[in-house]
Simulated assay, not measured.
Amino acid sequence: MIEKLEEIFKKGSVTYYNSSYFFPKKIREDVTKLYAFVRVFDDLVDSVPQKIEEYYNLRKLYQLEKSGYNTGNIVLQNFVELARRKGFEDSWIDAFLDAMESDIYKKVYYSIEELLKYMYGSAEVVGLFMMKILDLHNDSMYYARMLGRAMQFLNFIRDVQEDLYLGRQYLPVEDMEKFGIDKMECNEGFIEFIRYEISRYFEFEREAEKGFKFIPARYLVPIKTASEMYKWSALRIKKSPCIVLSKKVKPRRTKIVITVIKNFAGVYLWRSLNPII
């Protein structure tokens, strides 16, 4: 059963999937259950054409599973069990599902304020789910949200071309206007626009990293690794912003594994000097 969920997880995110190998076995299984749930809904609204009826049917099945009805859907069964065991708040789950639904009808974001509201449901609550899976103190809640926000914002930068294909634009239109551009094409204005958004990503990321002090070393290694892979992607895009118009910047699996190995030594030394609060 877990193998099916792993297949969904692996297909959805190379960075998260490979980093998660370095969680303890039980934690990794819970992370897999979470990301399988997130991915199946996301895939329905990201398909071409969108599988709108399937999205609403799956959401109804989730409500049935949550109410105690056996739907036979292993993704939903495992997620509902996980949510109950770890104490996920219903409002977080609803916020995620509402964000996925908004991808059906909302295609363009005009301001950062508008985008932040979307990112709460689509990414920040995933950070909250992870906080609960890892049994972190509630004082880490803000930082968990910020890490989810930072990573998704970098995804929006990295996936500009893919989102254009889907008829979407997440990066705020008002930011494009600051640099005098009205379309995504390689020119000086576009280069400065992307670098501006990369700077905003780093602001979110630096804020999120303040919360690493709440995370035990055995959990921090994979989280820090995923975070560093996102920073690596961001720096590569900052160097050549127009790359996002032709390819998706991602680290290779070997780079992820090498970073994990380096982090084992570094994290445990850092933790010895910075005990958990």
Rank of each mutant, 00 (worst) to 15 (best):
E162L: 12
I261Q: 01
E209R: 15
I215Y: 01
E6I: 10
T71D: 11
F37G: 07
L273D: 03
F204R: 02
M176A: 11
D135F: 02
M141S: 15
Y35P: 00
A144R: 00
E203C: 00
K248M: 04
S233K: 03
I181V: 04
S246Q: 06
K51M: 12
Y143F: 15
L64P: 00
Y110N: 13
I74W: 00
T71N: 12
V14I: 15
G148C: 06
S111I: 09
K132P: 01
I93N: 05
G167M: 07
V31R: 08
G127K: 11
S240M: 11
K11D: 12
V38I: 15
I256F: 01
P222Q: 12
L128F: 09
L134A: 06
Y105K: 09
K107T: 13
F156L: 14
M176L: 13
M184A: 08
T71Q: 11
D30A: 06
F193C: 04
M151Q: 09
D182Y: 12
L82G: 05
I194T: 05
S102L: 13
V267E: 05
N73H: 10
K231S: 13
Q50Y: 02
N138I: 14
K86T: 10
I237M: 13
F190Y: 14
K247M: 07
L5C: 09
N155I: 05
Y230G: 14
G189M: 08
T259N: 12
V48C: 04
L82P: 03
F9C: 14
E197V: 06
F37C: 07
F214Q: 11
I191W: 00
I277H: 06
M146G: 01
I133Y: 02
Q161M: 14
C186I: 11
E174H: 03
K238N: 08
E162I: 14
N78P: 07
I93K: 06
Y196E: 10
F22R: 04
A99P: 09
I237P: 14
M100A: 09
D175P: 00
Y56P: 08
T32N: 05
S227M: 14
I261K: 03
F190P: 00
I112P: 00
Y62W: 03
L171T: 08
V125I: 05
E81P: 00
A234V: 10
P222C: 15
A208C: 04
G266Y: 08
K86C: 13
T32D: 03
K248Y: 06
S140V: 04
N78D: 09
Y268R: 15
R168P: 02
L34N: 12
A95Q: 02
Y118L: 08
D42I: 10
E124P: 01
K107A: 11
D30F: 04
V221K: 10
N70D: 15
F79T: 08
